[in-house]
Amino acid sequence: MNGTLLFLALGALPQGLVLSPRALPPAVAQRLTLDIAAAKSAAPATFSGLQALIAQVPRLDAQKRGDLPTLTPRLSRLGPDALLPMLEAIAFQAPARAAWTESAERGLRLSLIEAAGMLRDARAEPVFLAILASDERDFATLQLTAEALGRLESDTAVNALLAAATTDKRDAVLAGMGQCRRARIADALAIALDGARSPAQAKSLVRSLAHAGNAAAWKLGGPYADEARAVRATAAEALLRAFIAYDDEARDAASNGLMVVDDAETPILIARARVLADAATAAALDELAQRFARNPTR
């Protein structure tokens, strides 16, 4: 199939669950279409397996415990071969879902994005980029897309996330981009946290920054392991500033974040901050220092 014919074929393709294939760069759409077709031919069981799993969503929705049915654990355990079937469902051909409830459809959309992101496969990058660049305004969809893109940790992902964080999608992107464990991301989150408009937003940013600096994740290495020290230091410093700035949920979240980041410099940072602190804050800092000394995450 030559490029023109393929492009025409793409024009006739049905809509994906989250995205139209036309939202992808033509070359990317062509390549993914071919990859999907090849995978479907080579390993049809993975596609039929995903379809069978998706067919369970109405039942999962009826039996859900939380607010939405989730497939994330199941999908993420299907392994790397499940990426293309998931991308097909997200961007090329939405699965049949007659008479689905809104929560069933929403649960599937979010599960597919989240699970595809957890596979950390660069082939998904253009799909996540396209969702981020689309007209999508649903907070959870954007947050999970930012997380999914962030997990790839590529320079392209970093640039796209930082760009999206300056748009009207800012809050959702900031909430999700902490999964991108890169120095520039941590810097941006720290700045955003310093300028948070409310305790609730601060809490969201604290959690995102804690993801970025998560000591356990860094211990498992990765392509940008050389940025570990910078990310964790930036996170620790910003989290401590938030701890001092707030006295509510955001402070509690900052305390938890400092435990998660577990940066070695934290006791020194606390001691320095204590010098200038008022009595109440000093007492809170003392408690924080004690908590860090017995850090529950270790």
Binding site: S76, H211, A217, S255, N256, M259, R291, P296, T297
Partner: peptide
């Protein structure tokens, strides 16, 4: 990475 990072965060939250 998913399990270890989520577990670390859960440990801090539960401690709180």
């Amino acid at each position: 990475k998913e399990i270890m990072s989520a577990s670390t965060e859960a440990a801090a939250e539960i401690d709180a």
